[in-house]
Design a protein around this nucleic acid. Structure first.
Lengths: 372, 372
DNA sequence: TTGTAGGCGTTATCAG
DNA sequence: CTGATAACGCCTACAA
């Protein structure tokens, strides 16, 4: 009973089934049966064993159990950054489903770094987790995920789909979402529309190369690229210019986006509207516009991404593309458990809906500007 | 190679040290030494074993390792709700420290429910985690935490301290923080100051009982109670009235707080300033004030809690009490690892600083109102 | 119904 | 330096 307070040392060996058996005066097998509720045990003995267990403060050893059964009842989630509301909410969805299934969830933050992601997956596999939900930060470099699959550990992709991996994925239609947002601005009469977004540094910056007259994007499908595609497609349909109004940042930080937005708005011919293609970019954009004292939507129209609480608290409330990270997390976890239970149907690409929430930050451009 | 895609079934038995040994033509002992980098192995054999391991795709089994070593290199965090930015950020801090130590973190959400918290701790213990960080939702009912300690698993309390448990805790000085916020409003000249906050339903609602003339709060020290104490103490010092302007909600939901704030502001003699004592209450209060079309700080002054991004994005930016959940998470995890490593010094109550960030939502009350 | 024995994969101990 | 063997705690054939 020394220094049991903080509990660091107090680790007197935990009682085992054998201890309980001895205390109850029965064999380990009987004790095991009585405690684990399997096989047949006489009522008298069962009570006797249970009592002994309580007396000793017995608690089953999950590690030993996992050792025998092969299952750890644990899944892993590799997100980019749990302090980002998108991933925090997705994690909540994942945990909720895991709990329903009697599982726990381990978390790792990749910070969009490939090496960290790989290391996390490796540790998860060593820990014998039974499945992985991952928001992969590269869509090509998936050897570590394939390895998990080869080991019999199902993988579900969240937020990003990968053509290089035969795995379930839960995504939104990024191209369509961006298209809808930009088309909305075009419908309002805007023709110079800026775009602000994050692109992860690990995958080479994508070329917005002019092809047969119309600009296109190269690179594997991933959210940032797809959103640019939707933006370009919309501009193209309306015959609007799309040359140099895209600003990408490799640093996913609001302050950085504020600078990028500043650059955009300082152009000789600044855009009359800007589409921010992720929630951090949206925040940076809003900060920049605010600091410059521009009226929204009087001087400039804004469409943001992600329906975070603050977008309705600011003045005016922002028109945004809304997705549901909670549903995405839940859905990903559900797919994962289906696979864990043995579902071997062909892998699915599950596309959850987005909605353009029309609020008050996008309106017609100032009179006289329209003439491009 | 059948259906290896989604990886559900592909679970062909993972290679073990024995398999590697056989492949390399050595004994398990030698293979183990070569792979685990312990003991002495001849250079030639080591390379031979390593090669065999790569050939077979060997990956160590952490469960078996834990079985022998007793350590799982895993800690648990029981938070209230990971989708709340406070806990998300704290989790980030915990994960970062864990990673530095070569540990992983499991997450459980308690939703402020005692039964869920207890169950989470129980599962964590069965999983043989080596330490627990917990934001306990009851300060008295700590039997489950003491049990962890008795089993030799250190516990660190986050956000709340418990007099009933001899454990490290990482908290802020809630009473002082609230006092500072309210004193600020009093200094500005306010005398009717409302308060809005969450109290968890599990612990009986606390009595604001008039004692020897001055109102006091009963109940064990916990954030909500301490914040009320600070509020009352400040009012008392300035001789301000403090009867009926506190509104508690047992539902930690912005919409609910909006209703509570509405009630407060609909009073025949409404407060000229309101202190919201947690981040959700702050949001609800702001929504209510906004919807009623009141000018801030012209018609009413506001002081909120937690320095969330949105509090600087709204107009006007909110004066808030700031704490640092990231630091709290980091600090809690650091204490935990100190304990895991055997530190048995007396348990500490670590109080991290808060700051009242003076922005623009609190100013002098409207002229003529001052006369109370 | 109850007891005995063996194995899951790793690592440590002991002998050679 | 290398190999055989035991042990962690639980579960489950199999035997009594």
């Amino acid at each position: 009973m020394v220094a049991s307070g903080t509990g660091a040392q107090g680790g007197r060996r935990r009682p085992t089934v054998a201890d309980v058996a001895r205390e109850a005066g029965v064999s380990v097998a009987t004790a095991g049966r009585a405690l684990g509720d399997y096989g047949r045990v006489g009522d008298a003995l069962r009570d006797q064993v249970r009592a002994a267990a309580v007396r000793l403060g017995y608690s089953p050893n999950g590690v030993a159990r996992s050792m025998r059964s092969g299952g750890t009842r644990t899944i892993g989630f590799v997100g980019v950054d749990i302090s980002n509301p998108y991933f925090a909410t997705a994690m909540r969805g994942i945990c909720d489903v895991a709990r329903e299934e009697g599982y726990e969830a381990i978390l790792a933050n990749s910070d969009d770094r490939m090496d960290v992601e790989r290391a996390a997956v490796k540790v998860f596999l060593e820990k014998q987790i039974e499945g992985i939900v991952v928001a992969p930060n590269a869509v090509i470099d998936v050897a570590h995920l394939r390895r998990a699959q080869d080991l019999g550990v199902p993988v579900v992709l969240l937020d990003r789909h990968s053509g290089a991996l035969d795995a379930d994925s839960v995504v939104i239609d990024n191209e369509r979402a961006a298209h809808e947002a930009v088309a909305h601005l075009l419908d309002l009469g805007h023709r110079r529309i800026g775009m602000l977004l994050y692109v992860d540094p690990d995958e080479s910056p994508e070329l917005v190369a002019s092809d047969a007259g119309r600009p296109t994007v190269r690179g594997a499908a991933r959210p940032s690229i797809d959103r640019i595609r939707g933006y370009l497609a919309a501009l193209d349909e309306y015959g609007a210019q799309s040359s140099d109004l895209i600003r990408c940042s490799a640093i996913g930080d609001a302050a950085q986006f504020e600078k990028e937005a500043d650059a955009l708005l300082s152009l000789p011919q600044p855009p009359t509207a800007v589409f921010a293609a992720d929630n951090v970019a949206t925040q940076g954009l809003f900060m920049s516009v605010r600091r410059r004292g521009l009226a929204i939507p009087g001087d400039i129209s804004l469409v943001g991404f992600d329906d975070l609480d603050w977008t309705t608290l600011v003045d005016p409330p922002l028109t945004v593309v809304a997705q549901s990270p909670m549903d995405m997390g839940r859905t990903a976890a559900q797919r994962l458990f289906a696979r864990i239970k043995g579902d071997d149907s062909p892998s699915e690409r599950i596309v959850l809906p987005t909605r353009l929430l029309l609020r008050s930050s996008a309106a017609e451009p100032p009179a006289g500007i329209r003439a491009d």
